[in-house]
Design a protein around this nucleic acid. Structure first.
Length: 461
DNA sequence: GCATGATCATGC
DNA sequence: GCATGATCATGC
């Protein structure tokens, strides 16, 4: 059968792909496509390959169009506010081969051979819709810029390093910035051997972080010009230093100075009472204008947290996470839960300390949660899920104040569960009635970092 | 003084 | 109107 395009000609491949824009697979003019027989995650991509591009889905180490070095990837979009699109998830690339990567160099690695040049097909995901009816919205070739490539290469080296030291089982997406090592395969990756340890490690694949995919989407749809401010002005800055070292270096010039003094040095006038104060201060220190987002941080999905330490180094407050929805929580599995996803982000902690009446900048530190600690939080999560699903939230009411059975600080040294709402009436629905009160919704709660954990494991380490 | 319940302020 | 990061307040 004659193909409708020439797979050895890049212009032809891309032109063929672009015919899909604003169409669905069902509308793509293929007779037998409804007989595809694929189901589950990834089936959109498989049908796209097999029916539209007319080759059998495979797990070759070569790019899909090997003659022109082009790798085809399909990825879902979600709509955010009006006509704007975001990535629904990370973009999963090839499997990390634990036994091969120790002998690889980046330039000739299987990762780079396969993914240097991508052909991206973004479709709009809709819950419960047939994959043949997803509307394809964006189709574009993608190549990494020099700056991004330096960071991706550093990420790749970091992943390789961890495997070399026999820690493949401790890999986490939070280890890296743009290129992550995400779990792949049933229930968070079937364990497999690794070369420098007896411990089996989950199967993982290279992936582009969701924030990075959002950046790709924004650039190819030519949206949001001028919304982002770059921290790295030239890729040569990344030759000798990592992004993290560059950022911390910029903060170091202000260590030991008070907030009013730093504001004066930076020539800015911010209201310290404003909740956006710390994020504005961070931008000013990093040389990004206040009305812009820090591009590198957005791409790497970095979470910034400001912490005020008391004289004894204990943070004045615990650190809150976003509130969770009870109904969602009880439906989740730990491996794919919102909490685990959150904990596997990279964080930038900015520590201030009270001295007399001033807050002094002490330290800026990048951090992501060690593997062992993530396992500990799993217990907190499971207990919380258990309590909600059994309707055992409220333990007692005294003087109008309710006490709960949620895991408290004594349950885990890392994390506990506390209210996180505008007031007690600010609630989320419950999956089952609360036994003690009979209510069907409850004050919004969140997971929190214990202040002592932040002191001992983040500030002091 | 700490643990936990409760709430604030901003920006989208 | 609500999500989010941050902070206050009460009781033991």
């Amino acid at each position: 059968m004659e193909r409708k395009y020439d797979p050895e000609n890049k212009v032809s491949v891309i032109a063929h792909a672009r015919k899909l824009i604003n169409r669905t697979l069902r509308e793509s003019g293929l007779d037998n496509i409804h007989m595809h027989g694929h189901k589950g995650k990834g089936s959109f991509g498989q049908v796209l390959e097999e029916f539209y591009f007319e080759y059998k889905p495979n797990s070759n180490s070569e790019p899909d169009f090997k003659e022109i070095g082009l790798e085809l990837k399909a990825s879902p979009l979600k709509k955010v506010k009006g006509r704007h699109y975001n990535s629904k998830e990370r973009l999963v690339l090839n499997i990390i081969n634990y036994s091969d990567i120790p002998n690889e160099k980046f330039e000739t690695s299987s990762f780079w051979k396969k993914n240097a040049n991508l052909l991206l097909v973004f479709y709009l995901y809709e819950l419960d819709q047939d994959i043949l009816d997803y509307k394809i919205r964006l189709v574009s070739e993608w190549e990494f810029t020099n700056e991004d490539l330096k960071i991706i290469r550093q990420d790749w080296e970091k992943i390789k390093e961890k495997i070399l030291s026999g820690k493949a089982h401790e890999l986490s997406e939070g280890d890296t910035l743009y290129l992550g090592a995400c779990t792949k395969g049933g229930k968070g990756g079937n364990p497999r051997p690794q070369p420098f340890s007896q411990i089996h490690a989950k199967q993982r694949a290279f992936s582009l972080k969701q924030g990075y995919v959002n950046h790709i989407i924004a650039s190819i749809s030519r949206e949001q010009k001028g919304v982002y401010g770059k921290l790295i002005k030239s890729s040569s800055e990344l030759t000798k230093k990592t992004l993290e070292e560059i950022v911390v270096g910029k903060f170091e010039s202000y260590y030991g100075f008070s907030i009013p003094k730093i504001s004066e040095m930076l020539g800015i006038n911010l209201n310290p009472k404003a909740k956006s104060f710390y994020s504005s201060l961070t931008k000013a220190i990093l040389g990004v204008s206040l009305d812009k987002e820090i591009e590198e941080f957005k791409k790497a999905d970095i979470k910034i947290r400001a912490v005020r330490l008391q004289k004894n180094n204990l943070p004045k407050e615990d650190i809150s996470f976003p509130a969770f929805e009870y109904v969602k929580l009880v439906r989740e599995e730990w491996e794919t839960s919102e909490l685990k996803d959150f904990l596997e982000h990279k964080f930038l902690f900015v520590f201030f300390q009270f001295v007399e009446n001033d807050l002094i900048l002490k330290k800026a530190k990048f951090w992501n949660m060690p593997h062992q600690d993530i396992l500990d939080v799993e217990k907190v999560w499971k207990k919380t899920k258990d309590i909600v699903s059994k309707g055992e939230i409220v333990r007692d009411i005294k003087k109008g104040r309710r006490s709960t059975n949620f895991p408290d600080k004594s349950y885990s040294k890392i994390s506990h569960v506390r209210p996180h709402a505008s007031n007690a009436a600010d609630t989320y629905p419950l999956p089952v009635k609360d036994n003690f009160t009979g209510v069907l919704s409850y004050t919004k709660h969140a997971f929190w970092f214990n202040s002592s954990y932040v002191r001992d494991e983040i500030y002091l380490k």
